[in-house]
């Protein structure tokens, strides 16, 4: 899920940026520093949308650098265990398939794919029901439920399932 939240960060600024444009410099450095980062607590920072408040700067002894506490609003993407969302399939193999929902990767193991779907190898590996009516392949859109998340330093990785009511391939919106 995407959220709009307020975060705080202590920004260190080199003295050469002091002057009329100090605020602009601080903001553009903030965007460069935080956009695209990921933390386990807040998820992926997608975009900074506004500055709430810039506190008083504190000069660091000996270096001349100044630390500003900056409060900013941003859009983050944070997946939760138990959340249901839609994703695009990126890769299919006999172990299961990978899907992407925005910045996050989700793996759905073949144990968590309905039992009536069989793996078919070939140019376009896919999972298909025995009557061929439902097919999961690269670029399919699926609705899945997140079973668990694993956080490492720069990424959040999820395990998902489509073995539940109202989950699985989404009807083609053009025909629905």
């Amino acid at each position: 899920m995407f959220f709009h939240i307020v975060l705080e960060r202590n920004m260190q600024l080199h003295p050469r940026y002091f002057g009329r444009n100090l605020r602009d410099n601080l903001v553009s450095k903030l965007m460069k520093d935080v956009e695209g980062t990921c933390s386990g607590r807040h998820g992926f920072v997608v975009a900074v949308t506004g500055i709430e408040n810039i506190g008083k700067g504190l000069i660091r002894d000996g270096t001349g650098f100044v630390t500003f506490p900056v409060k900013y609003q941003c859009v983050v993407f944070r997946p939760f265990k138990g959340e249901i969302l839609e994703a695009v399939v990126t890769m299919v193999n006999k172990m299961g398939f990978f899907a992407e929902a925005g910045p996050v990767q989700i793996f759905v193991s073949n144990h968590l794919i309905p039992d009536d779907m069989e793996f078919q190898s070939g140019d376009m590996p896919n999972y298909t029901t025995s009557d061929g009516s439902v097919k999961i392949q690269k670029d399919s859109e699926v609705r899945l439920k997140i079973m668990g998340t694993r956080v490492d330093a720069t990424e959040i990785f999820c395990i998902g399932t489509i073995k539940d009511d109202f989950l699985g391939v989404i009807n083609d919106p053009a025909t629905a």
Binding site: M1, F3, I5, V75, K81, G82, E83
Partner: peptide
Amino acid sequence: EEEENAAELKIGDDFLKAKCL
């Protein structure tokens, strides 16, 4: 992290109070 479960709306105070989009 173990506590979190969106199905029961356990998503942590930070996010429960935050604006969802």
